[in-house]
Design a protein around this nucleic acid. Sequence first.
RNA 1: GCUACUGUGGCUCAGCUGGCAGAGCAAUUGAUUCGUAAUCAAUAGGUCGGGAGUUCGAAUCUCCCCAGUAGCUCCA
Length: 618
Amino acid sequence: MKKVYDILKEKNLISRSVIAAQINGETVDLSAMTDENSEIKPLTFDDPEGKRVFWHTASHVLAAAVKNLYPESKLTIGPSIDNGFYYDIDSDTTFNAETLQAIEDEMAKIIKEDIKEEKFLLPRDEAIKMMEEKNEPYKVLLIDRIPEGDEISFYSQGNFIDLCAGPHLYSTGLIKAFKLLQCTGAYWEGNAKNKMLQRIYGIAFTKKSDLDDYLNKIEEAKRRDHRKLGRELDLFDIYDEGPGFPFFLPKGMVLRNLLENYWREQHKIHGYQEIKTPIMLNQELWHRSGHWDHYKDNMYSTKIDETDFSLKPMNCPGGMLAFKRKMHSYRDLPQRVAELGLVHRHELSGALHGLMRVRCFTQDDAHIFMTPDQIESEIFGVMDLIDNFYNTFGFSYKIELSTRPENSMGSDEQWEIATSALKAALDKNNKPYIINEGDGAFYGPKIDFHLEDCIGRTWQCGTIQLDFQMPERFDLSYIGQDNEKHRPVMIHRVVFGSIERFIGILTEQYAGAFPLWISPVQMRILNIGENNISYCNELEAKLTENSFRVETDYRNEKIGYKIREAQLAKIPYMLVIGDKEEQNNLIAARERVTGKTETMDINSFIEKCREEVNTKKI
RNA sequence: GCUACUGUGGCUCAGCUGGCAGAGCAAUUGAUUCGUAAUCAAUAGGUCGGGAGUUCGAAUCUCCCCAGUAGCUCCA
């Protein structure tokens, strides 16, 4: 047995940037002991696993600093995350910007001292005794949960000792640049019934310039915030008078309608019919559908003529009624019925977020009724449709499969069939996905499609949910080949998810500079002199006749000023018209993206733009 | 809902320990008719999120609401 560090050194694989190692896929400390002949891969900060070690160690430095400054604080957990690390602490001291600065300073000291990280093991009773003596009740709880037979490891960092599975950096001095980003609340064990702890988030790098780049990137990304751009570009806004109830302004409405048009066109091609069901239905229906039992706290209700009604939080019950009005043959299946349905949900005030999380939104819903043997191909078809949509907008996305939650309807067998059908379609689809245990809807498992916003948070947009329950509850049936009644299976699915959320993401994706085909304003005509206005009017008429969305700016301002304004309004093309153009019957088209100007005749310009629109060029 | 923080003209923000509400941009008006990211000048615009309290005096201090931000929980 030898030290990993020594083996790497002998093989000349060690350098200052090596911070940990991997043996058979398992990440270990450089100080770990292993067989001389082991296959060892050195890890640097550039490896994802290396980052984890780095950030995890940084979280321990954070914990040590907190204990130095506020000894009464009790530590819980401090993992690395996708971008950095955090530590959850139960403390009488309320952390704020000031204390965060103090903690940062203390961390800097610990790093400067370049303290060695040393791992040691303890038997369970001794481990518990030590943590009890240190007054760390959460750590005692954590030790209790470590399975019998697993090792109970600690890391010491000078006087600071913490329960930890590791691995760690060999010394705190490697953390060359770090910053504590924010402190917030977080429930112990992620359960809202438990005590709220204080969570401190941080980020760390191996060099200062990387930290600066990271912080700049965050600042830059905030400029894409859809809430800000929505207001600036007259797309949408939310006012105090309607928290969570967004307003769509004229330009936002143009964008929204264009998206809906595209959606209708695609769904027609893919064999969907469209319906519209009421936004309010009586409560008896919601009892029948099961929504009342599972969802009533989130529903808005009212009375009409002594009868209780609720605003729909989902479109399915309406869709069930529409299906049920007729007899269906197996020959008519699958039946794909779509609806742009406005739903209302009472979301917690703290959960609201611009257009991403609202209290009323339009789902681009569809319910597919089918025979059991059509399940896989229908799911596959929807996945394909979603993929097409997202590619059209240039989105990359993540797929998640969510399985049976605790509070659910239906039998084990049904859940098993449904879940494996989704898995089969996913495997056939050949795209990576992760599994969220227990995160499904109460009526069935689901596949979710997640898109990223400007600061890297992901939002669920598309979803495909398999449902055996609704057809049961609504006693849906079709007549099979055997001339007997059978129960259809159903899929709920959305592609955009919520049109509002999708527009939010879209706005951030393009930073408000939408591709020509969905730009609320596609071009603006800018005159140089007053004498050019009548020629400009002719051009405007011609472009409008050709279905382009045109604006004009004939104000008595310098051309540079008007260009600046059009540029800030993110309009794709500026048509600059002066005597030069008018005399030759031409236009000077300035492209927003490149800032380059090309002179051409109006018909060529129309042709060029038409091509750009038709190909949905991003 | 929970924890922390924030709320001052349309927008972005200044206003230190309580003492006459400010700036830039936008808007309006006038002059300028101008060639690829800001012409000049003037004018107007605010019960300082709302309410209560402390005080001779509150944008500023205290309390209660409302709304927002970040995260947690929950969710499309």
